[in-house]
Design a protein around this nucleic acid. Structure first.
Lengths: 208, 208
DNA sequence: CCCATACGAGACGGGACCGTTCCGGAAGTG
DNA sequence: CACTTCCGGAACGGTCCCGTCTCGTATGGG
């Protein structure tokens, strides 16, 4: 239930030749996990003070500053910890693959934790572009690429119109799910939503 | 260029029987306008302190507190000031009305100011539901109703499939524009985008 | 074993902001 | 004109936070 908080969280690689006591890996995960939990609980990124993070993680403030230069650097690592593998195409028909990708968004990505993180990142698009860039490269890019790959396959097989831009198509498929997760606070994502979105988009809104 | 900051901004109605010097209406608009400008410049809602708002508006802090109980109440009035009339349907074909509504979103609503406000509000969905509720009732509801009215008209006239839910359809039309405005920082909203979204949705993604 | 380094805890000075209060002056009402 | 209320400015005590530093203790590599 901890999401993608596992390994790969280390903020900086040790340059070998370490004497003395090594740093505790548990501290890294505890801090990152605490930030995610607080965001999940609705604490805004600005109410998140380094002091509070350390307090709630049961960690000395100096220990946090020993690893991260400031809140910005810490947040970047938090975003990096969210890296998740997108499910590969099942190889069935394109329609089912699209539904599966949207279901992945609905279930794993947008249930609670990730919707909170997404809201937080969106709020920082203007003030801290680096934060958004990191989130885009780490999380968004892989998902978009997965969508576009399926769409290209559909275009090759004749299941998808080939005269459309895959970027725009990806927006058409993804953004309805995204908007609901952003605005409706991770409720209102009912079971059959993915199918309804995909089928409506495929069939078109105009009567046949 | 001041947007919807005009009348109706007063935080509380005067109960008549006022002696002494009346409150300056200029202060109300100056404060609200300053908040909007700061949000527009990328200042997060949490970096927005009452002290800073008063300073930048050239207004005494006590004067602000005389009108609003706190930041939450002030933000509610700021959102209320955003109320804008949605353009009525031109009465042409449904397709053109849908394009016109999306164009309204692209041009007026989502260029700069409103995208900043929307990001701010989204960030507060969890922490301050009242803020989101106010924004929804003031801004979102009217726009959604306009969309659904056009869609219902299209269903009656046979231009839109009648077996679909107007709420979901509205999401399909609106959210691609919304997502771009949220994520891409009010760039990347090119001229023909509205037409492309509407036509793709109408025609469908599957080949004919 | 020894020593360098990490650890939690907390003190430190500096700064920002909160919400209130007071001031001297301005501006309408009666 | 007298009076009441508002105005901008500024100060107040209080709280929280920042980033650094110092304790005394724990822990692992050489």
């Amino acid at each position: 239930m901890t999401g993608g908080g596992g390994p790969g969280t280390g903020p900086a690689a040790a340059p070998a030749e370490r004497r003395g006591r090594p740093r505790s890996a548990a501290v890294d995960t505890a801090v990152v996990e605490t930030v995610l939990r607080l965001l999940e609980d609705g604490v805004g990124v600005a109410e998140l003070s380094m002091e509070r993070i350390a307090r709630e993680a049961g960690v000395g403030k100096a220990t946090v500053y020993r690893r991260w230069a400031g809140k910005e650097a810490l947040m970047l690592d938090v975003l990096r910890s969210l890296d998740e593998a997108v499910p590969g195409p099942a190889g069935g028909c394109v329609r089912d693959d699209l539904v599966a990708l949207l279901e992945f968004l609905r279930r794993r990505g947008l249930a609670k934790r990730s919707s909170a993180v997404l809201r937080t990142v969106v709020a920082q698009v203007q003030a801290r572009p680096a934060l958004w860039a990191e989130y885009h490269d780490t999380v968004v890019a892989a998902r978009r690429e997965a969508f576009e790959a399926v769409l290209r396959r559909g275009m090759a097989s004749g299941e998808i119109r080939a005269d459309l831009d895959t970027g725009l198509l990806t927006d058409l498929f993804v953004s309805p799910m995204l908007s609901r997760a952003l605005f409706h606070e991770w409720r209102e994502l009912p079971e059959g939503l993915s199918e309804r979105i995909v089928d409506t988009l495929l069939e078109g809104v105009r009567p046949a």
